[in-house]
Amino acid sequence: MAVATHDNAHADPTAHAWERVRINRLGLWLFLFSDAGLFALFAASRFYLSGTARDPHLNQALGLAITSLLLLSSLTAYRAETAFVHGNTARGRAMLLATIVMGLMFAGGVAFEWATAEFPVAELYGTAFYSMTGMHAFHVITGILFLAVVWARSGDGHFSGGPKVWPITATVMYWHFVDVVWVFFYPTLYLLK
């Protein structure tokens, strides 16, 4: 129990650090939950305004490609965290880098789609499509920034072992969250008819 360990915390630095991680973890989950509400309201608005109708001009191949890419980046993010947890800094860094690269490719894919899409933003479907992908892409970009910061700082074994891995875990959780949002947005925007 948190209450019982409170006094121990100062005696044992490792226990104190774990206590901190536990507090941070709940905070992060609440933040992600709250953020998910924002996405959910945009998705709900899409159904409210235009039902399940979608524009026939969507680039389905590109959609499937960027979706796969983001899913794959979730795997590399998982592998990065697992490697850091087990003290394997070299693999962890490589996997972080792979995640960043795939994230950038995803953002590039969205940008390409925006540049080539044939439906205007003023249409109902365009309203949903551009605002939802735009908000998601904004989260992808912030995620890439966080990943870049932890990647740059992970060189000297900064994040190795037990509670010290938390910054990596937090960043990777954020990245998975971005993926979860896309898990719902992809069928909402591309697959329903």
């Binding site: 609440l30 939950f33 709250s34 953020d35 509400g37 924002l38 309201l41 945009f42 608005s45 305004l49 235009s50 933003v121 003023a122 249409e123 109902l124 365009g126 309203t127 551009y130 605002s131 908000m135």
Partner: peptide, 30 residues
């Protein structure tokens, strides 16, 4: 923590309508 994003979402939609020309609230496009 649970509801505030509703206000944020509404205000962002107004902002999108104003700035990038979406049609959340524009009756002309539905």
């Amino acid at each position: 923590f649970f509801f505030t994003q509703g206000f944020a979402a509404g205000l962002l939609m107004v902002l999108f309508d104003r700035v990038i020309g979406t049609s959340f609230f524009g009756a002309a496009h539905g």
